[in-house]
Amino acid sequence: MQIELLPLYVLIGALSGVLGGALGLGGGIVVVPMLLLIFHLREIDPLVMTQLAVATSLATIIVTSIGAVRAHHQRGNMRWPLVWRLATGVAVGAFAGAFVADWLSGPRLAQLFGLFAVILSVQMVLNSLRKVVLDAPERLPGTPGLTLAGSVIGLVSSMFGIGGGSLTVPFLNACRVRMQQAVAVSSACGLPIALAGCVGFIIAGWDNPALPAGSLGYVYLPAAIGIGIASYPMARVGATLAHRLPATTLKRIFAGVLFIIGLRLALG
């Protein structure tokens, strides 16, 4: 199981936790590229390497999302009725996303992740330039519309091993939900995405002979444990830093790095 790499996985967890807490990003967008690099150096079969990274990232989100939900609930920003209206679609989409990712070849999934990272980096820069409209009335769709939106968010999030914040928050912002509430609802939706996606990846990868020892389906347990141990406490450190550092500048720098990484993956 190469348990000697555990300190490296802990380091990845710490970095993803700090960046996630400081910039309001899900750790998956940090974890997946780093795991891809490690798995490439370990010469894991390219046909399963990306699925392994994505599924392992989802497993770590289970831990971090629980802490985030609790924090947002304590601050009074959680809108549980809205969460329940999104949750079914999100869970179904996330479960299906695991099988879509399994159906794709590893290199093609990596290219799609890279394209997603490029789009996300551009979105981050544009959001940092956008003026916030205050006190605008909400325009949320009905339950069928929210279920459909949740299904798309869950599907894409599960395919790329992210908690869905990069999709849920912009969607809710477009519906004119207050930012604090949008982030809170997004964090709550991250839990069904991670749980349903993880179950899907475990089933889809069960008994795959190309997977390394220590894998539960597509979830690589040593990496999931190491990253999960560090990301949860370090997310609080990142949240504290967010109040002391120029968040807008940091987001633009991270967007630039993400753009380069995404372009490299997209171009193969």
Rank of each mutant, 00 (worst) to 15 (best):
A110N: 03
V177P: 04
L148K: 06
A210V: 01
V156A: 10
C198S: 15
L112E: 01
G150F: 07
W206Y: 11
A110Y: 02
T168E: 00
A196H: 11
I193M: 13
I153F: 13
C189R: 01
L120E: 08
Q111K: 09
P141F: 07
P144C: 14
V199L: 12
A182K: 04
P209A: 07
R130D: 04
L109Q: 00
G114V: 04
D135Y: 12
M179A: 07
C189Y: 09
G205L: 07
A117G: 01
P209V: 04
D207Q: 15
S121G: 02
A213H: 04
S215D: 08
V152M: 13
L120A: 14
L211H: 02
L191H: 12
L155D: 09
P192G: 11
W206C: 08
A136N: 11
P192M: 09
F116P: 00
S166L: 05
L155N: 15
L129G: 13
G197Y: 08
M179D: 10
I193H: 12
G114I: 03
S151C: 15
W206S: 14
L195E: 12
S187D: 13
N127C: 01
T143A: 13
A149Y: 02
L109E: 10
V152G: 05
V199Y: 01
L211A: 07
S215P: 07
A188C: 11
D207E: 11
A196M: 05
V132K: 15
G200Y: 11
T168K: 01
T143L: 14
V125D: 02
Y218L: 02
S158D: 14
A194D: 10
A174R: 03
P137W: 12
G114R: 04
V125F: 13
S158L: 06
G217F: 02
V122G: 07
D207S: 14
Q123I: 03
G150E: 14
P170M: 09
A204T: 09
G142K: 11
G150C: 12
Q181L: 00
P192E: 15
L140F: 07
G165V: 08
A110V: 03
G142N: 12
G165T: 09
L115N: 03
L126A: 10
G114A: 02
N173E: 01
I119W: 10
S121N: 04
F160E: 12
G114S: 06
G214N: 05
P212S: 07
I193S: 02
G163Q: 04
L140G: 09
V183A: 11
G214P: 05
V183P: 09
V132T: 15
Q181C: 04
G161F: 08
G150M: 14
M159D: 14
A149P: 07
R176G: 00
R178W: 00
V133N: 13
D135N: 15
V152W: 14
G150K: 07
V152I: 15
G190I: 10
K131W: 00
V125S: 04
K131P: 00
I203K: 15
N173A: 05
V125K: 13
G197C: 06
S215Y: 02
Q111R: 01
L172G: 08
G164S: 10
P170W: 05
R130P: 03
